[in-house]
Design a protein around this nucleic acid. Sequence first.
DNA 1: GCCAACGTTGGC
DNA 2: GCCAACGTTGGC
Length: 159
Amino acid sequence: MRYWLMKSEPDEVSFDDALAAPGQTVPWFGVRNYQARNFMRDAMQPGDGVLFYHSSCFDPGVAGIAEVASLPYPDETQFDQHSKYHDPKATREQPRWISVDVRALEKGRYLPLAEMRTIPELEGMVLLQKGSRLSITPVTLAEWNAILKLVRGAPQMGA
DNA sequence: GCCAACGTTGGC
DNA sequence: GCCAACGTTGGC
């Protein structure tokens, strides 16, 4: 079991949108970076923990807890000429970009990026490194636990 | 809107 | 395969 932080622009798909979706599940489309794609393709497993992060908005931060809810599959938007994610070099036979489904699980307290920067346990997070802009980044168990504690506003039992 | 940082493209 | 030019991300 691994843990991930996945960035979404809330104008496009917010955590509330995911909560309201059928099965509380949304396809994670539009990833157009090879490193992020490879994480989905090679390392993600159904059941992995996901921090649903809101980016490019007034107050960026972790908006909720989610999980990976599918194996990787071709991202439909690469084939759609009317999508801003259309990739003319992608074909059905040889897709370039993939999606996974993400299921929203738990909406806790909103955890702003600015607050994350003040938490010593989170100092090493890939997200917080200078120049880091990957839309999908691995999260360590220690970081995951620290964030869950903050999001739930109370110490976590067990584990 | 600015701009630092990073990724991609394409000529050579 | 180098690397300059260009494009994108995303916090501020």
